[in-house]
Amino acid sequence: MSRLRGNVRETYDMPDLSFAKLVYPDRVGAFIKTATTAAGASVIEMQEGDDINELIRRAYPNAKTIASNVPGVKADLNPDDVAKPQDLDGTDVSVVAGSVGCAENACIWIPQTMKQRAVCFICEYLVIILDRDNIVSNMHEAYSRIEMPELGFGAFISGPSKTADIEQALVYGAQSFCGVTIILR
């Protein structure tokens, strides 16, 4: 510490960060476009009278194991109840709630609101439920809105896990989920 202090010759102030930032007149439209192109996710816009379980079932008709602790979502496994995170392995679809969406890059903030956060990553497919009113334009707005939950973990997630490590060929489904469906309500 003393060496760090001693080695500073000149100090610099924090810059002003109030420069103009990218904003979208149609945030929801921009979000859907980024999510379905760059991020590689699917988006379902929930309509009046739609049943959430019906939408999930329709998106993933072959799913045998669904894991979730979101109220109102029918699930076979609950990440609050499993004895250990390994018990969630083999989950076909996990359903989680996002609190803020960001139009510029399709990031969705997923706060850890379940005991075993492995549920968010271990599944083959992830369903994220997001309120359209919670979509902002850019990451500056997103960071000013997000809240860290009591459990002390949260992640911005943008589409399925990806890799291009083998000859730059883009492959969905590296170590985590292979596909994402966002349900906008």
Partner: peptide, 15 residues
């Protein structure tokens, strides 16, 4: 890319 797929914030140990 407009973002990495995961931007994960670790604040506390898991229970």
């Amino acid at each position: 890319q407009p973002t990495t797929v995961y931007t994960s914030h670790f604040r506390r140990p898991r229970p």
